[in-house]
Amino acid sequence: MDALSSAQNKLLPEMSVLLKKRYQILQTINQEQPIGRRTLSEFSGMTERDIRKETDLLREQQLIEMKSAGMVITRQGEEVLDSLKSFMQKLTGIADLADKLKKQLKISDVIVVPLDSDTAVTVKNQIGKEAARLLEMNFTGETKVAVTGGSTMAAIAKELKGEKAYPSLQFIAARGGLGEDVLHQANTIASAFAEKTGGSFKTLYLPDHLSEEAYAMMMKEPLIKEMMDLYEQTDLVVHGIGNAEELALRRQSTAEEVQMITEGGAVSEAFGYYFDAEGNVVYRIRSAGIQLEQVQKAPNIIAVAGGHSKAKAILSYFKNAPERTVLVTDEGAATEVLKLIENIGGN
């Protein structure tokens, strides 16, 4: 927090509390519009009475409109959000938090959004929005973008603006199917990215988890060889970070595999690799998707993960993540990661 914000906070602490509250309400309306008061109350954790009072004020200031389908933000409201973004990051300490995490993880940059996606459902969408803006900055020339699956990745697809066509973009599914909700699979997300941007996409219609015999056979197929060549040419990788046990269950891993993952002390998962708390690979599935060495060669990398429950996984993965990686996360995860680092340093 800068000197002015700190002095202001000491002189009028109630102003900071009120500003944070109204900013959060306006941000949630912007993210979830149209939205009713009851739903907004549930999302924000505030009472309906409090929500009614604050939204009436926002309406009087012409920052939101009341419509039959729910509340929506006005152009003026959007401008207020944009204008206050940097100030709110300083006021809440988010900017300092991001800077500390960037230095501790030794990576290119960290972007932190307020609150915790484990407890506030709209935060994941905000992570998606920040990652989408970051991704759009890389839409230049003939760019090949490899994307993984997951709900946070789906949030990025939702938040891409789609206001301009980029026909030279190519989105490549970095993984096969996990047997999960099809909307969260890499193939679907690559397709959604292409649809929003006017680019093309390449899919990998294979199970993410292959037997040794199937893997050896599939790697000889021309279509798989083509995908592996595309991974070598990738300009940008956008990926999530998973909790090891959760991903093992989603993959319907065998009892033997789960035992190896558990006994190996696996904490995180990315690209089919399971890492322990020190960042060592303890298990690797046979997958026709992008390989870790290909990720590490990519010129640009964006990692997305949020929620305090992902803290151990984030810290584990970033033990060996390329320095040019940018992490987009939330306050809950960032705070918990720094606590873990402090605890490790104190032991």
Results as ranks from 00 to 15, higher is better:
111 I>L: 13
142 E>K: 11
97 L>M: 15
201 F>K: 04
243 N>P: 08
119 T>G: 03
172 I>C: 02
14 E>Q: 01
342 E>M: 06
14 E>M: 01
129 K>P: 02
86 S>G: 09
135 L>V: 02
180 E>C: 01
292 L>F: 05
299 P>V: 01
263 E>Q: 15
186 A>P: 10
146 A>W: 00
87 F>A: 12
44 S>K: 11
183 L>D: 14
185 Q>W: 08
53 K>L: 13
78 E>H: 13
3 A>I: 14
245 E>G: 07
36 G>R: 10
135 L>Y: 00
186 A>H: 06
203 T>H: 06
290 I>V: 01
205 Y>V: 11
170 Q>R: 15
45 G>I: 06
259 Q>A: 07
342 E>W: 06
265 G>M: 04
43 F>P: 02
16 S>T: 02
315 L>D: 13
14 E>F: 00
153 M>S: 02
259 Q>S: 13
67 K>N: 11
325 T>F: 07
42 E>K: 12
119 T>A: 09
172 I>P: 03
48 E>P: 11
237 V>W: 01
94 I>A: 03
243 N>K: 14
170 Q>V: 11
174 A>Y: 07
311 A>S: 15
326 V>T: 15
71 M>I: 03
338 L>I: 05
4 L>I: 15
200 S>D: 03
300 N>R: 00
259 Q>G: 00
98 A>Y: 04
164 K>L: 14
209 H>S: 10
214 A>Q: 12
65 E>L: 02
114 P>Q: 04
315 L>F: 09
125 N>K: 13
175 R>H: 10
98 A>W: 06
72 V>F: 07
260 M>C: 07
213 E>Y: 04
143 T>S: 08
38 R>Y: 06
151 S>M: 09
39 T>F: 10
138 N>E: 14
